[in-house]
């Protein structure tokens, strides 16, 4: 199935709060435990981009304007 949406993260702005992870209805966002960003946090990323529907719920809840959302 082709993705309907796409989320892009400004990873160095992320504070690792996890609000996007809990807002995503498809549960495809995760904290990247392999990466430490400029601020010293594990930033959020999309673990399964094919499933994104571009609903922007993640961006709605992000307190740090980390996420840009596109829809196809």
């Amino acid at each position: 199935m082709a993705a309907k949406g796409k989320v892009t993260f400004s990873r160095d702005l992320c504070k690792g709060c996890g609000l996007c992870v809990s807002a995503c209805p498809l549960k495809i966002l995760e904290m990247d435990r392999e990466t430490i960003n400029e601020k010293g946090y594990n930033p959020a990323y999309c673990a399964d981009p094919q499933k994104c529907i571009g609903c922007a719920n993640c961006a709605m809840m992000c307190p740090d304007q980390v996420i840009t959302v596109e829809r196809f």
């Binding site: 702005l13 922007a56 709605m60 992000c62 307190p63 740090d64 304007q65 840009t68 959302v69 596109e70």
Partner: peptide, 26 residues
């Protein structure tokens, strides 16, 4: 492909001092 959400021009392009997850940012 259309951008449906991006950072507003109403905020300066800087990181805030707010704690992680603080809803002041929203």
């Amino acid at each position: 492909m259309a951008v449906v959400f991006e950072r507003t021009k109403g905020l300066r392009p800087v990181s805030t001092h707010y704690c992680p997850g603080c809803t002041h940012g929203i």
